[in-house]
Structures are given as C-alpha cells and as structure tokens.
Design a protein around this nucleic acid. Structure first.
Lengths: 209, 209
DNA sequence: CCTACCGATCGGTAGG
DNA sequence: CCTACCGATCGGTAGG
C-alpha cells in the first residue's frame, strides 16, 4: 500500500486563472532549477492541477515557453523604465546608464528569464507575434533614448540602431557574464551597480586615447 | 521479425580514441539540435558504440559536457589568435577589433558552443580545473592586448580588467544577439565583420559627444 | 479539469 | 565495450 502524500501546494491557484498560474509556476521552476527543469507536467503540479490540464490553455510546451518569455520581456521593460524614472536623468548619458543598471539588475535577479529568452529554441522566426512585440517594446525603450540623445546633440551623430546595438550588446554581454559567473559577481547590489556604471562610462567616453 | 537497419555511421571511430569521438559527436548533436539534443546515449550512437560505452571514459554526462565546453574554449582561443595574427595589427585598437571579429565569427559559426558554455548548468564553481583553465586562457588573450595597449599609451589609463570586461561584454553580447536572431544577422560574413568593426569602433571612440 | 494510457528518451548500473 | 535492465520523466492524447 502506497502512502499518498499531499503534494499540492497549500496556496495553489483557486479556479482563477490557470493560464497565469502556469506561467508563475514555470517561472519558479526556471528560477530554481534552470531550463532543464521546465516541463509542462511539473508546472501543472506546482499549480495544483493534473498534467493534462495545461493543454486546455496552451497548445503545447512551446506555447507556455513563449508565454513565459513574453512576461520576461515585459518585466525587463518595466525594470528599465522604473530605473529610468527613479534616476531622474535628463541627459542621454545618464539615461543610458540608468537603463543599463535596470537591465543588469533584472538579469541578475531573474537569470532564468534571460536563459529562457536567449537560450531556448525560441528563434525570432517561429516566435508568436505577441512575443515578438514584447521584445520589440523592450528594445524601443533603449532606441528612443539613443535617438533623443543624438537629436539633442548629447550623443555623437551616427546610425541610431547601430549605437543602440552597441549599448544593448555591452549591457547584455555584461549581464550574461555575471549570470554565468565568468566574472566575479559583485557581492552587493550596490557594487554591481557601480561596476555597471563604470563599464557603461567606458562606452560613453571611449577606451582609446 | 525485426529488420535491423545499420545505424552505425560509415566512418565512426575505429577503436581509436572514443573519448575524442564522443566529443565530436556531442558537438555535432549540439550544432544540429541545440542543447536539448545532447545526451550521452545519442553521442554514443553517433560514435557507433553502445550507450553503456561512454561510461568507460566519462563518469557521467556532466563530464562529457565539460569536455565539450573545454574544446569550445580552445577553439575560441584559436579563432581569436588566428584573427589577431591574420590582421597584422600593431596598435591596440586594431588588435581589439581583430579579436572581436574572431570572437563573433566563432560564435556565429558554432553557436552551440556558446550556448553550452554559457547556457548550461556549468557554473564556475563546480567546473573541472582544466575547463576553468581553458576559459582563463581565452580571457588572457584579450587581457594581454588591453594591458599592452594601456602600457603603450594607446588606450586610456584605467583598470585593465575593467577595460577588458567592457570589451568582452560588448563582443559577447553582440554574439549572443546575432545567435538569437534578436538583431537581423548580416547576410554575409563580410557584412557581419563590417558591423562588428563599427560597433567596436564605437567603444573605442565613445558614443558621447 | 481528471485519470489512464501511449511511445519515447534519458541517466545510470549490473554482469559479463 | 556489449546487452539487458532499472526507475524516472516527458510530451501528448483519449475519453470521460
């Protein structure tokens, strides 16, 4: 005889929005165990439903993955916007620094999102439209700042997308190196922020004589 | 009665070096199907041996993954050194550009390596010593160029590791964005190279006025 | 939304 | 280095 242990989380969703609850569960799995731990079945269990239930809301696993990635983009966009506002920056250089700090903080706080967005088989072609849009929105936060900076004469003249690409690459790369542990990760959020600011400053001023 | 179809590749390894053959197989799996397709069993099949055989050479799956990642680092190091030599660059700015071109070319030619190195659970702590050393060697190629550049007065004075971190972040981020398709990937290697050079130039000269 | 089931794959081990 | 086996997990579907 098998003892049946209650595995349903005490506060699983209650008839409410299983669709959202599954995303929550997926994020949790991702955060705690990485990409390999993300499965529809485990998400269903975490949400307190049977493993057949998710198919009422998602056609297949890829659909849930896309939904999680979409939320990731939205969270990232918000993190950047919040930091931008919080900083009260008015000049392009300061604004870009704020965006960078927001991006890196998001990345190190939720490494699973970046792993999912950039690490899974989600390539741009077969991504659902809403996911593509969420990614585009995040990019536009950066692009707008760059464009305004060039127009205001605070950034050197140049192709807006190319300058934005340089900023994005720098910050994304820094985030990935932090996440992977390739760089000794600063021990406090404050130190992380300071290092991020110095690295961004290098892009601002240039490293050559 | 079951028809037995020959699944052994015609030119699988022959009693030679199964250890190396399994790495080859793993790289192939990774390249063709991404991280999710990498399994010890599939690698064994590709190498033409039974699925129990790999355990004679690798304690577990993680050991094979580490071996593949190590080869990835060595290939990357070679790609950077080759491009550096090929360029004939003598000044730091040109050298850094060459390293960047080599890095990005490696990344887009072998996206699976970067996915494995930076995307799997290989964190710095539990990595075998040889893997850590291979990663360090790749970093030193960059660091040496930066250090020499600062000493020669071709790069602004500053913390060597911090400047190197900025370079690495920029190039790594650019590579990841290319791989993921977040940026419209240049259609030819020549265009990719040109874009990489322009982005690196932005770091060299700075984007602020 | 559940139970029961399918085929497939996996990591790993025993025993030779 | 092979065969045979283990327990586990997975995505997905049928049928209710």
């Amino acid at each position: 005889m098998k003892i049946r242990v209650a595995q349903k989380p005490p506060d699983a969703y209650q008839h409410g929005d299983l669709r959202e609850a599954l995303i929550d569960a997926g994020v949790k799995l991702l955060t705690e165990g990485g990409l390999a731990q993300l499965s529809l079945r485990a998400a269903a269990q975490l949400a307190g439903v049977s493993h057949g239930a998710p198919y009422r809301h998602y056609r297949d696993k890829a659909a849930l993955v896309a939904a999680i990635a979409e939320r990731g983009f939205r969270t990232l966009t918000k993190a950047m916007r919040d930091e931008l506002e919080r900083s009260g920056a008015r000049k392009a250089g300061r604004k870009l620094t704020a965006l960078a700090v927001g991006y890196v903080a998001f990345a190190t706080a939720h490494p699973a999102y970046l792993q999912l967005i950039f690490g899974s088989g989600l390539s741009k072609e077969d991504a659902p439209e809403s996911l593509r849009a969420a990614g585009e929105e995040a990019y536009l936060v950066l692009r707008d700042v760059v464009e305004a900076g060039i127009r205001a004469g605070e950034l050197r003249k140049g192709d807006t997308d190319e300058v934005a690409l340089a900023c994005w690459s720098l910050v994304h790369g820094l985030s990935m190196l932090f996440i992977h542990g390739a760089v000794p990760k600063p021990e406090t959020a404050k130190l992380e922020r300071a290092l991020t600011e110095r690295v961004v400053l290098l892009l601002g001023e240039g490293i050559e004589v």
